[in-house]
Amino acid sequence: MENKIAEVIAAGSAEFTAECYELYNIPPLGSLVKTINEPVEIIGVVGQSMTSGFEPGRRPIARGKDEASEAAVYQTNPQLTKLLRSEFQVVVIGHKNGANLFQYLPPKPAHIHGFVLPCSSDEIQTFSRSFDFLNLLMHNEQIPPEELIAAALREMSRVQPDPSAFLIAAGKKLTGLMSGDYQKLKAVLGRLTL
């Protein structure tokens, strides 16, 4: 697994948290990632992410007063890359068992220390043939759902042969899900322009 980018450090049925192998190497908000819990491949969307110190009690301090740039701060303090860590939360939106793809929660959560990998373009295309996952995104509690949905759809649309047609179809699905809340729908649609 050469392209692994992170490792699961906390896992639940509907979401898991992963720590990046490299500082700041966080996949973009809304991008599709997966982790494997044999024989199931759990697929999720990157939600909330953060970078902080290893020890919860020790807060980082400002160090760049005399430095010319941000990069120079890290050069002068090489220990920083070892003392800081980036992590992100993943909202689970489906799973794959063999050739079968399901857009609902997997029977079991991810394993701790499971590797987290970004999904390939082909995988994203296959996954985004249906929009049933939108329902799971709407009910996440970490991040405003409008933001997360819009980000996920934008990310998915990048690999589509006809991105605008894809977004229109997704929008139509959302219209059904958000019926009765036109303002919220408008907010999402407003964030879907490429």
Binding site: I168, G171, K172, T175, S179, Y182, L185, L189
Partner: peptide
């Protein structure tokens, strides 16, 4: 209604809402 320039929203709403 959506802005006339906003063809995307109009296209999404057409046939759904």
């Amino acid at each position: 209604p959506p802005d006339t320039a906003d063809t995307f929203t109009a296209a999404v709403l057409e046939g759904t809402a």
